[in-house]
Amino acid sequence: MASKRNKRPERGISLRAFAPNAVTALALCVGLSGVRFAYMENWVLAAGAVVLAGILDALDGRVARLLNAESRFGAELDSLSDVIAFGVTPALILFFWSLQNMPQFGWVISLTLAVGCALRLARFNAQIDDDDQPHKSAGFLTGIPAPVGAGLAMLPLYLWMITDLELFRHYSIVGPWIVVNAFLLISNTATYSWSSLRLRKNIRLEALMLFALMGVALITSPWVTLAAISVAYIALIPFSIRSYAKVKRQRELDAN
């Protein structure tokens, strides 16, 4: 009984878990700052805020695994941050930039991106303890991740900043593109994750050099690079579907 009385309940989060959660909170603040920049019509900083939030979002999970500080609190905070930074923020940016000029349905279409992101993350949280996840067990994702959805949704904005053509800003282009991305977020499409990608030993140095050059390109020509990455990711989706279909067929054969 004495040991139970002397055992103090844990309060708050551990010091070890502070770092990854701080990165997540920073990603939330940086992403949401994009709304302020959009309100000021500073589209470069608005898009840059979302991109930087995506980089921070990629870091927080790795910091948590490095420190062995993964927790349910961190997972919930990460989901809330993602909804705001990659759902609400790009929806508002694209509304201020383009869809506010659309008759009647501009706001509704903007909301589809925020709702799609929220539904995706709600599904993820609901299945977080579910062992029966065929895509995850095979190293694939279900639908496109929230940061990717935000980045892809802003592809017309990247193209507009590259070319200065008002065509890419027109709601007839932006509206349908947002809806497509919203449905990709909540779809059951199998998409590549880092664990599903395998590099052959003889090209790993080349891949490392390509990754480094991509980082330099993001600094020197960010919008061209982001547009190219977006197009490349879209082009990879059919290949990811085909790759998962092969894995699924092999599993069915092994089961029989």
Rank of each mutant, 00 (worst) to 15 (best):
1 M>T: 11
3 S>E: 11
7 K>I: 12
10 E>Y: 07
11 R>Q: 13
12 G>K: 06
12 G>A: 12
16 R>I: 15
21 N>Y: 10
23 V>Y: 03
23 V>C: 08
24 T>L: 13
26 L>E: 04
27 A>T: 08
27 A>N: 09
30 V>Q: 07
31 G>Y: 10
35 V>E: 10
35 V>S: 11
36 R>I: 15
39 Y>L: 15
39 Y>Q: 15
41 E>N: 15
42 N>D: 15
46 A>D: 11
48 G>M: 09
52 L>S: 10
57 D>S: 05
59 L>R: 04
70 E>I: 09
74 G>W: 00
75 A>W: 00
76 E>V: 13
85 A>V: 03
86 F>V: 03
87 G>P: 05
87 G>K: 03
89 T>H: 00
90 P>W: 01
93 I>D: 01
94 L>C: 03
96 F>V: 00
98 S>Y: 01
99 L>Y: 07
103 P>G: 00
105 F>I: 00
106 G>H: 06
106 G>Q: 03
108 V>A: 07
127 Q>H: 08
128 I>C: 08
131 D>P: 00
132 D>H: 14
135 H>Y: 06
138 A>K: 04
142 T>F: 00
142 T>V: 13
144 I>L: 03
145 P>A: 09
148 V>G: 10
151 G>F: 02
157 L>Q: 05
158 Y>T: 03
160 W>S: 10
160 W>M: 08
163 T>V: 11
169 R>L: 11
169 R>W: 02
170 H>V: 04
171 Y>T: 13
174 V>H: 04
176 P>V: 12
176 P>S: 07
179 V>T: 14
180 V>G: 05
180 V>H: 01
184 L>W: 06
187 S>Y: 04
189 T>H: 04
193 S>W: 07
196 S>L: 13
198 R>C: 11
198 R>K: 13
200 R>Q: 13
200 R>L: 14
212 A>E: 03
214 M>V: 11
214 M>W: 13
215 G>V: 09
215 G>R: 04
216 V>A: 10
217 A>G: 07
219 I>P: 01
223 W>G: 12
229 I>W: 04
230 S>C: 11
234 I>A: 11
235 A>R: 04
236 L>V: 09
238 P>I: 08
239 F>W: 10
242 R>H: 08
243 S>M: 05
247 V>P: 05
251 R>I: 15
251 R>M: 14
251 R>K: 13
251 R>L: 14
